[in-house]
Write a protein that binds this DNA or RNA. Structure first.
Lengths: 234, 234
DNA sequence: CGTCATGTTGAGAGCCCTCAAACGTCGTGG
DNA sequence: CCACGACGTTTGAGGGCTCTCAACATGACG
């Protein structure tokens, strides 16, 4: 982790999609930027850890972050990913609770930290921002409840197909419109779906044989998306 | 389901804890009551179904409701319970989406339906109510993410212990301070934890043998809460 | 008192995990 | 430039947890 000076522009000129801040005026965005700190994290570094207390919210300028929870045998469960424009840590901050997940950089990340005070006062003064926050939380809740159902009832292959499609939806394809645009280990794919690494690799290999996907080194090409979707919803 | 006339008092004189409405004035609570409809549901009846569109939010006056999702083999997963004072269906309503869960009465339920308009206009005018809604959603999200971890990593006995403790926390004990104050079938306990009915019964029987619980007919007495907690967090 | 849902228990199977070994890749430092 | 180690990938063997299926008991309720 490295503290940056003036590398990232003020929020009012941030090129990213504004998400929760989309309703704010240029003026309000400027206010948001007061006391904003910028950091750089290298791949693998942790932005915050489950069990620690938040001092502000994070807004991702560039890069990808995974949010995960550690189980009791040291096995991780990936809860979701966040990328540029996404905000992190507001749930814990608003509830004044410890972080319930750990945030880890999946690649090199530039991130802004906004002090609690600035965020909260905007939330209290802007009803639209409140509603937007409710929207974000609702969406996360829906996803999470679906994940409970998946892990509880679906078999490994179906969950793996689901994970691959999640990666597609969140990160898209490379230029060929087939290869997942995301560098991710087999272990992490397993951690998305709640599968052990060995079984993840075995099942990916099955998909490869069945021509649902094609594996080249670490690249994963989705060949038969329709069939993957059939599996994922079955 | 039976429509009731004047059986339930106006919101401003509702004896239940106000939850999301706790910050509202008597006047605002009165406004909330305009166009409020009251219904009675008998045990087993569905208040709303996954896939339908909401017309308003529900606020439980008395009784207990389970929220569940149906898997593809017809197996249900219970997402959470709601009881008097809890509100239902606001997530789907605010997102203008179909219900993502089905709500079923666990016993006889008296419930109020508040039209979308009344709820939304209060949400837009009352920042405190917004913040309270954010709090509720945050709490649900945290629980749900924990459940993902449980179902994904814990073994059946541990998840069952967790479910029993959830029942204790949500519904408490009967007079003896040991017997769960909730009529619930073995199948439903299994559906809380993502376990089949047969395995649920077998594991309950194991707990009984190990003197963690005592079974009398449908009553479940928690004998060794400390050990159940140890299991649940292991 | 019949009927249907729920509870209980047994036998067997299979999915997936655990453990282990071998190999490839990549970055580091000698 | 190569040796080395760390990490990720791959594959096999074996086992156990949990599901499925089935039969029967029990209880609720008209």
């Amino acid at each position: 982790m490295k503290k940056l000076e003036n590398t990232i522009p003020s929020c009012d000129s941030c090129p990213n999609e504004k998400r929760v801040f989309c309703s704010l005026s240029q003026l309000e965005l400027g206010e948001l930027s007061i006391n904003k700190k910028n950091f750089q994290y290298k791949k693998g570094e942790e932005i915050f850890q489950e069990g620690n207390y938040p001092h502000g919210i994070f807004c991702i300028y560039s890069g990808v972050i995974k949010l995960s929870k550690r189980g009791n045998e040291g096995k991780d469960q990936i809860i979701r990913f966040a990328k540029s424009g996404d905000i992190l840590g507001y749930r814990s901050m608003l509830a004044k609770q410890m972080y319930s997940t750990t945030a880890t950089a999946m690649d090199d990340v530039l991130i802004c930290q906004i002090p609690i005070h600035n965020f909260e006062s905007l939330l209290k003064s802007s009803n639209k921002m409140c509603m937007k926050t409710i929207e974000l939380l609702s969406d996360d809740l829906k996803r999470s409840e679906n994940q409970v159902l998946s892990v509880s009832q679906k078999r490994v292959a179906d969950r793996l197909a689901e994970a691959l499609l999640t990666l597609k939806d969140k990160f898209g394809f490379k230029e060929d419109q087939q290869t997942l645009n995301m560098q991710i280990t087999r272990r992490e794919i397993g951690e998305m779906a709640g599968i052990t690494t060995a079984t993840t690799i075995r099942t990916l290999s099955d998909f490869n044989k069945d021509k649902l996907i094609a594996l080249h080194n670490k690249d994963i090409k989705l060949i038969n998306v329709a069939e993957l979707e059939r599996l994922a919803t079955s």
